[in-house]
């Protein structure tokens, strides 16, 4: 029962702060709500007993990525960006309907498949030791090529970000 209570509390925090990210006009408040949402997701991973991923989520998202976002928000002069929402009633209604429709489709598909297969509770949550040792063994054996590709990707991103930041207009330089 405590598991259920903590799940619903974390779920409420995640969804409320995610809605705040989308609906609050000021981008700095959006960034702070996103940090709260990331922390909630880390708590969810913790409750799923994925301890290492919860830690990485906290360090990478709630730490590094959010610092990046807040830095960039502070670089910009955003005084006249209060009304940066989609304009036009038709467009707004269409976009809201589309989002709600996709959520209903996914939820309907989930509920139908779970009523076919029985409830999700019947899938036993097994107790294996989810040690970091097993995870890293898997990362360096089965997924070693993806890991190397990721290293190449990160090098490319570093070079690309520096080149973009130093660029003075590229081919259209004045």
């Amino acid at each position: 029962m405590t598991e259920a209570i903590s799940f619903y509390l974390i779920q409420f925090i995640i969804l409320a702060s995610a809605l705040a990210v989308v609906l609050v006009p000021n981008p700095i408040y959006s960034a702070i709500s996103l940090a709260v949402s990331m922390t909630g997701i880390a708590a969810l991973f913790f409750s799923l007993e994925a301890y290492f991923i919860a830690g990485v989520q906290l360090v990478v998202y709630a730490g590094a990525v959010m610092v990046l976002f807040v830095m960039v928000v502070m670089l910009f002069d955003l005084k006249k960006e209060k009304r940066a929402f989609s304009r036009g009633t038709l467009s707004r209604v269409l976009k809201t309907t589309l989002s709600v429709l996709i959520f209903s489709m996914i939820a309907g598909a989930l509920s139908m498949s779970f009523s076919e297969l029985g409830s999700g509770d019947s899938i036993a949550k097994e107790d294996i030791t989810r040690s970091i040792k097993e995870l890293s063994a898997l990362l360096y054996t089965k997924y070693v090529f993806a890991f190397e590709a990721l290293a190449i990707l990160l090098v490319m991103v570093i070079v690309g970000a520096i080149a973009l930041a130093k660029a003075k207009g590229g081919t259209h330089a004045k």
Binding site: A18, L19, V21, V22, E81, A84, F85, S86, K95, S99
Partner: peptide, 12 residues
Amino acid sequence: CIGMFGVLMRKN
């Protein structure tokens, strides 16, 4: 879906 709504709805 909340994230998708934000991508569609916001202009910032």
